[in-house]
Amino acid sequence: MPIVSALLLGAADQASKVWAVRNLPLFEPRVLVRGFCDLVHVRNTGVAFSLLSTLDHRWVHPFLILATVLAMGAVLAYIAYLPCRGTAPVGLGLILGGAIGNLIDRARLGYVVDFIDLHWRGHHWPTFNVADIGISVGIALLVIDMVFSTKEPSDASRPAPDR
């Protein structure tokens, strides 16, 4: 289940970015919902919310690729070796798919294509993409799983049967 959701999100992310690059001129907003959502093609050389984008690209770029690959390895290890139930498998798949989508951009282009721009009454959220949505929803699903899942007691904490 996690691998399927990862592949679906990665494909949707890449398809949406191809559409954005072909149809949205760089840095020219197009109103989708007046006063709330625009579509604007931007290039993010940093990480979430453009953090690190002002630093030297020669070392930030390889660092971000390495960090993404290591994070993907950790998610894959979690999927493979730890019990996944509840909302965790889908959440892990969405995180992995988002990482894949943004890694493809970063490795191929040297930046990540972002194009969804939310704002409301003077408040502005940094521009993001479908991969970022998947990562955010995946993290929310993991938190939900941690808070609401029922844990089975381990063998050591179970009371011994009466004889």
Results as ranks from 00 to 15, higher is better:
residue 114 D to P: 03
residue 114 D to M: 00
residue 114 D to C: 03
residue 115 F to K: 04
residue 115 F to N: 02
residue 115 F to A: 06
residue 115 F to D: 02
residue 115 F to Y: 08
residue 115 F to Q: 04
residue 115 F to V: 05
residue 115 F to R: 03
residue 115 F to L: 07
residue 116 I to V: 14
residue 116 I to R: 01
residue 116 I to N: 00
residue 116 I to Y: 04
residue 116 I to P: 00
residue 117 D to N: 13
residue 117 D to W: 07
residue 117 D to Y: 01
residue 118 L to R: 08
residue 118 L to Q: 00
residue 118 L to E: 00
residue 118 L to F: 15
residue 118 L to S: 02
residue 118 L to A: 03
residue 119 H to W: 00
residue 119 H to E: 11
residue 120 W to Y: 13
residue 120 W to C: 08
residue 120 W to R: 04
residue 120 W to T: 10
residue 120 W to F: 14
residue 120 W to V: 07
residue 121 R to F: 09
residue 121 R to I: 04
residue 121 R to S: 12
residue 121 R to H: 14
residue 122 G to Y: 08
residue 122 G to I: 05
residue 123 H to D: 04
residue 123 H to Y: 15
residue 124 H to K: 14
residue 124 H to C: 12
residue 124 H to V: 15
residue 124 H to E: 12
residue 124 H to F: 07
residue 124 H to D: 12
residue 125 W to S: 13
residue 125 W to E: 11
residue 125 W to F: 15
residue 125 W to L: 09
residue 125 W to K: 12
residue 125 W to H: 10
residue 125 W to P: 12
residue 126 P to V: 03
residue 126 P to M: 05
residue 127 T to C: 13
residue 127 T to H: 10
residue 127 T to A: 13
residue 128 F to L: 06
residue 128 F to P: 03
residue 128 F to Q: 05
residue 128 F to R: 06
residue 128 F to Y: 06
residue 129 N to H: 06
residue 129 N to E: 06
residue 129 N to Y: 02
residue 129 N to M: 02
residue 130 V to G: 04
residue 130 V to K: 00
residue 130 V to E: 03
residue 130 V to A: 12
residue 130 V to C: 08
residue 131 A to M: 11
residue 131 A to I: 09
residue 131 A to H: 09
residue 131 A to L: 10
residue 132 D to R: 11
residue 133 I to C: 13
residue 133 I to A: 12
residue 134 G to F: 06
residue 134 G to C: 07
residue 134 G to N: 09
residue 134 G to Q: 05
residue 134 G to W: 03
residue 135 I to F: 14
residue 135 I to T: 08
residue 136 S to F: 11
residue 136 S to H: 04
residue 136 S to I: 10
residue 136 S to W: 05
residue 137 V to T: 01
residue 137 V to Q: 00
residue 137 V to H: 01
residue 138 G to L: 01
residue 138 G to M: 06
residue 138 G to V: 07
residue 139 I to R: 01
residue 139 I to F: 09
residue 139 I to S: 04
residue 139 I to D: 05
residue 139 I to V: 15
residue 140 A to F: 09
residue 140 A to K: 00
residue 140 A to P: 02
residue 140 A to N: 05
residue 140 A to Q: 04
residue 140 A to G: 14
residue 140 A to Y: 01
residue 140 A to R: 03
residue 141 L to M: 11
residue 141 L to P: 02
residue 141 L to G: 01
residue 141 L to Y: 07
residue 141 L to K: 00
residue 142 L to F: 12
residue 142 L to E: 05
residue 142 L to P: 08
residue 142 L to C: 09
residue 142 L to Y: 05
residue 142 L to G: 09
residue 142 L to H: 10
residue 143 V to K: 08
residue 143 V to W: 09
residue 143 V to Y: 09
residue 143 V to T: 13
residue 144 I to N: 02
residue 144 I to H: 11
residue 144 I to E: 01
residue 144 I to M: 12
residue 144 I to C: 11
residue 144 I to T: 11
residue 145 D to Y: 14
residue 145 D to E: 15
residue 145 D to T: 14
residue 146 M to I: 11
residue 146 M to N: 14
residue 146 M to Q: 15
residue 146 M to L: 14
residue 146 M to C: 12
residue 147 V to Q: 07
residue 147 V to M: 12
residue 148 F to C: 11
residue 148 F to N: 04
residue 148 F to T: 10
residue 148 F to H: 05
residue 148 F to I: 03
residue 149 S to I: 03
residue 149 S to H: 13
residue 149 S to A: 15
residue 149 S to K: 15
residue 149 S to N: 14
residue 150 T to F: 13
residue 150 T to W: 14
residue 151 K to N: 08
residue 151 K to C: 06
residue 151 K to H: 14
residue 151 K to D: 09
residue 152 E to R: 15
